[in-house]
Amino acid sequence: MKNTILSILFVFSLNLISAQSQSGTTDIQEISETLMLYIDGTQNGKPEKLKKAFHPDFNLYTVTEEDSLRIRSGAKYVSNVREGKISNRIGRIISIDYENDAAIAKVEILVPNRIYTDYFLLLKYEGSWKIVHKSYTWKPTKN
């Protein structure tokens, strides 16, 4: 029994080791860091952090009140973040799922009277994770 448990632990530890990148961080940690660049960049007026998080050609997608698709330029979105302008936003990572070099993530952003839910598609290329797509929705907060 003891040998069986040790064997299972050994196999599990090999899986953890293989999930680490060359720098010693795991993909989950790297994805989280990319998402935190987005959260911190929008919350604290740091467009350079957004530029690190997003692929230059990313777009944002949502559904309008008229039930049509709205597509916004990611470059325009980043340009609207003013350097040093702190906003009243609180963000948190809800979930991350990845396989190899593709990931999806869910983030919630609390602003006065609303909660935004952001869904991200991330890809790992040239050694780092980048957000390549953002779809979002919102709902009023319960006061």
Rank of each mutant, 00 (worst) to 15 (best):
S7Q: 13
S7L: 15
I8M: 14
L9M: 15
S13K: 08
L14D: 03
N15W: 09
N15V: 12
A19H: 08
Q20G: 09
S21E: 10
S23T: 00
G24S: 09
D27I: 05
D27L: 07
Q29Y: 05
T34P: 05
T34Q: 02
L35K: 01
L35N: 01
Y38W: 12
T42A: 05
K46Q: 09
K49W: 01
K49M: 08
K51V: 05
K52C: 00
A53G: 10
F54W: 13
H55E: 07
D57N: 14
L60D: 05
Y61E: 06
E65A: 12
E66W: 04
D67W: 07
D67C: 07
I71A: 02
I71G: 01
R72T: 13
G74C: 02
G74L: 01
K76C: 07
K76H: 11
Y77L: 06
Y77K: 03
S79Y: 09
V81L: 04
R82Y: 08
E83W: 02
G84K: 06
I86M: 13
N88W: 08
N88V: 10
R89P: 00
I90G: 04
G91M: 09
R92H: 03
I93G: 05
I93H: 07
I94S: 13
I94L: 13
S95F: 09
S95G: 12
I96K: 13
E99D: 11
N100F: 03
D101R: 11
D101G: 06
D101P: 02
A102I: 15
A102S: 11
A103Q: 01
I104V: 14
E108Q: 06
L110A: 08
P112D: 12
P112H: 10
N113Q: 11
I115G: 01
I115D: 01
T117L: 05
D118S: 03
Y119M: 14
Y119F: 15
F120V: 04
L123F: 04
Y125P: 02
E126F: 11
E126A: 14
S128W: 00
W129V: 01
W129I: 00
I131S: 06
